[in-house]
Amino acid sequence: MRLIRIEKKISKLTDTELLEKYKSGKKQIYVGELFKRYSEMTFLVCVKYLKNTDAAKDAVMDIFEILLSKLLTQEIINFKSWLYVVAKNYCLARLKNIRNDLDINEIAETEINFMENDTTLNLFDTETIAEKTIEENLNKLKELQKVCLKLFYFEKKSYLQISESENIPVKKVKSHIQNGKRNLKILLEKYIISDER
């Protein structure tokens, strides 16, 4: 009964509060709650990179063990994004068979995009950047990236529609859009800097 009451209380704590409580008392119940909140995310990240369900399950438990010690020493601002990076890099290291050399401290600092930011949202905002400029820079991209971006953003086609029209897998459509958008952003940033000069 007491344990149920404690668990109920713990479930109401924020991630930051759970982290603080674990750091001060080293009670694993707090990490347990924290990790359970993102166990699906961790598992899916492992599935994505390891492409094997059993290996992903094992990886999740390994990552949980890593957290128990790493959380005590790391300064974590956003637990979810930190955990995502830890999980992703764990998988990449495992794929490379260099698990023992895994440096969580280093990888945890890796910058990731885990939400849309103003820059990406405004990328196709013609009020900010002239349509002609976007068009010019789009043409500098690889053909499939350019096509997928145009179809997705200007013609509002779905992944599936682009996949069918261009005869490429849906997965590739997404990849071309992502890479194309990233490259276009770089080109536009360069353009803005040179224009300011």
Binding site: F43, V45, V47, F114, M115, K174
Partner: peptide
């Protein structure tokens, strides 16, 4: 959203390797 979000993009991609039911069960 998944074009700009690394995390959601990876989670989205994971479903290529596993069914929705299995994710629920294994989680």
């Amino acid at each position: 959203h998944i074009i700009d979000c690394d995390i959601c993009s990876d989670l989205f991609d994971a479903y290529e390797n596993i069914s929705v039911e299995d994710v629920k069960k294994i989680t």
